[in-house]
Amino acid sequence: MTTASETSQRKAQGTTPVVSYSGVIKRFGAVTVLTGVSMEVRKGEVVCLIGPSGSGKSTLLRCTNGLERIDGGEILLDGQLLPSDGKGLRLMRRRMGMVFQNFELFPHKTALENVVVGPVTVLGISRDEAVERATALLAKVGLSDRAGNYPSQLSGGQQQRVAIARALAMEPEVMLFDEPTSALDPETVGEVLAVMKRLAEEGMTMLVVTHEMAFARRVSDWVVVMDKGAIIEQGPPQQIYDAPQVARTKEFLSHLGWAG
């Protein structure tokens, strides 16, 4: 799947991957949705997971922070095994930020409180410090003037940017994005992708499940193509988009109207 020459192009060569998956298996009842997935996310990398619906991309992402429990294989964060539950898992989760397709902001809290709540309740930092941090993060995602608004008073794009700020407030080592723009109106997709692009440029390690091929092509360092619960191809975006090695990748991209 991955040749030596492709591997040599990857970032953070020779260091421990931030996230590493080996032989990850996940079943829902009788259906095996991940059939032994092995891959790595390296420090500072933006890895995009693409593939048809039902290929297991989102499931793999949700396994990464233990929202789904794996049935086989292992997931390591900075070389440490991800526990299946309990306090150990919670300690790992706070090192990973997650952004959901449907934002999942807390509707009874203002934008600012959504960003404040994690650091205060989970990290135990003082409220003043958390408010200061949240204010800076809302400014970073361009929503300083919306701090006092409730999620229902914000557009989808604004809600998703608050959700990104909420995840960043935990100062995570890696950000997980689960189809962050799929639920958005077309006109607000751009503002969310712009925030993600800036994060990438700042060196944030990111794992992104996405159908935004232009984003994956331009911003990612590494693209992983999944189909039917397995990785069928992975490589730098130039390879995947300009010269895919696997027929199924080509087919998937052409279905999306990707012409290179």
């Binding site: 706070r94 990973m96 930020g97 959901f100 902001l105 807390f106 994690g118 989970v122 995840a167």
Partner: peptide
């Protein structure tokens, strides 16, 4: 909603 809370480490 609970998952969003868990993802924060709650």
């Amino acid at each position: 909603q609970s998952e969003a809370a868990y993802a924060l480490g709650m």
